[in-house]
């Protein structure tokens, strides 16, 4: 039997030590899940979308494909997509894609 005091103390100690509790886990799992539920998207579609976005931008600029990411952002009852498409700099660039705009 734990008293409320010892529970509170334990929680403080855990916070100081940076220990995670299962409730934190539950909350982050729900937050990761809901944007997909709400939009009918899934990680596979997101990956495909990212590839297509990278391909479009790649027609005009050199994209750092490995670091490109498309993320879902949950904000209460709205969600949005955030795409981060890093470009290779002109200085130190390796090569531009050889596709020229049609």
């Amino acid at each position: 039997m734990t008293s409320p005091w010892s529970a509170a103390l334990q929680l403080t100690v855990d916070k100081v030590l940076g220990r995670k509790h299962s409730a934190t886990n539950a909350k982050s799992r729900i937050r990761a899940l809901l944007p997909y539920d709400r939009t009918d998207l899934n990680p596979t579609i997101m990956e495909k979308m990212k590839d297509e976005i990278v391909a479009v931008i790649g027609k005009y600029a050199a994209v750092d494909v490995d670091r490109a990411a498309v993320k879902m952002v949950l904000d209460h009852h709205s969600q949005s997509l955030t795409a981060e498409i890093p470009l290779r700099t002109v200085t130190g660039r390796t090569k531009r894609p050889d596709t020229s705009p049609a």
Binding site: T2, P4, A7, A8, Q10, L11, D14, H21, S22, A23, T24, A26, K27, I30, R31, L34, H76, H77
Partner: peptide, 20 residues
């Protein structure tokens, strides 16, 4: 109550924060 205090159950605030 006791599980919320221990951080082993979502609190009312957590749920409201998610469901808005």
């Amino acid at each position: 109550y006791a599980m919320v205090e221990r951080g082993e159950m979502l609190s009312t605030e957590d749920v409201l924060d998610i469901l808005a």
